[in-house]
Simulated scan of single mutants.
Amino acid sequence: MSESERVRLIRERLGQALTLERLEVEDESHLHAGHAGARAGGGHYRVLVVSPDFAGHGRLQRHRLVYDAIGDAMRADTIHALSIRALTPDEAAGDDA
């Protein structure tokens, strides 16, 4: 799977599982060249997810929602590492995310 296909997969899965007000997906795989996960073919990504679905949830619960949405793509050969910033719309507006 190519890097652009992985980014598209992340976008699709998060869009299907969550009500998105904003989604940014950054491919940071190039920063991890030679890393064990990179050698296995998995990518490294950073996401900013702004969703009202996070209201009332703590950080761990929000991350679980994101990981659950991505599901089986969280394998070393697809997505090796995922850095998550998960905010409600109100938090994003006050944070200038």
Rank of each mutant, 00 (worst) to 15 (best):
M1P: 15
M1K: 15
S2M: 15
S4T: 14
S4N: 12
E5F: 13
V7N: 07
V7G: 04
R8I: 12
R8K: 12
L9H: 13
E12W: 10
R13T: 08
R13S: 03
R13K: 13
L14E: 02
G15W: 01
G15P: 05
Q16C: 04
A17F: 01
L18T: 09
T19L: 02
T19R: 09
E21H: 10
E21P: 00
E21D: 14
L23R: 06
E24A: 10
V25Y: 00
V25T: 03
V25S: 02
E26S: 09
E28K: 06
E28G: 00
L31Q: 13
A33G: 01
A33Y: 00
A33P: 01
G34Y: 02
G34I: 03
G34W: 04
H35Y: 08
H35D: 13
A36Q: 03
G41C: 00
G42A: 08
G43T: 08
V47Q: 06
L48Q: 02
V50F: 01
S51D: 07
D53I: 05
D53N: 07
D53L: 00
F54T: 01
A55E: 09
G56P: 04
G56S: 11
H57E: 04
G58Q: 11
R59N: 10
R59W: 10
L60Y: 02
L60A: 09
Q61N: 03
Q61Y: 06
R62L: 06
H63T: 11
R64C: 02
R64N: 02
R64Q: 11
L65E: 09
V66D: 13
V66A: 12
Y67I: 13
D68N: 13
I70K: 06
D72F: 15
D72A: 14
D72Y: 14
A73E: 15
M74R: 10
A76C: 14
D77I: 07
T78M: 11
T78K: 12
I79H: 11
A81S: 13
A81T: 15
L82H: 12
S83L: 09
R85I: 10
T88E: 04
D90F: 03
D90K: 08
G94V: 09
G94E: 14
G94F: 10
G94R: 11
G94Q: 13
D95F: 13
D95P: 05
A97T: 05
A97M: 01
A97H: 04
